[in-house]
């Protein structure tokens, strides 16, 4: 049995509660922890990070700190407002992707990416034939998302394979 740890760093209790329930119900063997403070805790496989805490933009700093001590973790920004400048800044700090909180479709895309990441982490290396494919799948999903943003005129950020 795998123990996949996911941290949701967000000061909105409804975001934490909703996302916790959704991830727990959709993904196998996950332990989801909600963190309301703008901190960078160690020991998680996946981080979902809000950008604003009490009106201050703290997400980039949190992501940068997590990336320093946890290069293998998947870090995703989950924000209510996304624009090109913000997305570029997030990717520069080591975030793999950013998702719009106000969209059901982007929640789906985010869950898919988390699932793929956890599958890859838990895969038996001897049996892996598609590790590279999985990495490419994650890249593809993020790239697809980025294209969608670009087509909406909101961003043209790089995919993780470029980042």
């Amino acid at each position: 049995m795998h123990d996949n740890k996911i941290a949701i760093i967000d000061d909105d209790p409804f975001v934490v509660a909703h996302l916790s329930e959704t991830l727990t119900s959709r993904l196998a063997d996950v332990h989801v922890v909600g963190i309301a403070e703008p901190v960078a805790p160690a020991g998680f496989d996946v981080y979902v990070v809000d950008n604003e805490f009490e009106g201050d933009s703290r997400g980039q700093d949190i992501i940068r700190r997590i990336r320093k001590f946890s290069p293998q973790s998947l870090i995703l920004a989950y924000s209510a407002y996304l624009d090109r400048k913000f997305l570029r800044a997030l990717l520069r700090q080591g975030c793999e992707g950013a998702f719009d909180k106000g969209s059901l479709e982007e929640l789906e895309a985010m869950i898919n990416i988390i699932e793929l990441h956890l599958d890859m982490k838990n895969a038996d290396p001897d049996k892996i034939r598609g590790l590279g494919n999985t990495v490419r799948a994650i890249s593809g999903l993020v790239h697809e998302w980025n294209l969608r943003l670009a087509s909406n005129g909101r961003a043209d950020v790089k995919s993780i394979s470029d980042a």
Binding site: D12, H18, G55, A80, Y81, K101, G102, L104
Partner: peptide, 28 residues
């Protein structure tokens, strides 16, 4: 006002209130 709209924008659609989410986005 911006802070309230920001929170509504990020949650309303997930609780079945897409109209509130859209209005909060417009307000932001």
């Amino acid at each position: 006002i911006r802070s309230i709209a920001h929170k509504l924008r990020g949650t309303a659609v997930h609780f079945g209130y897409s109209g509130i989410g859209a209005s909060a986005r417009a307000l932001g």
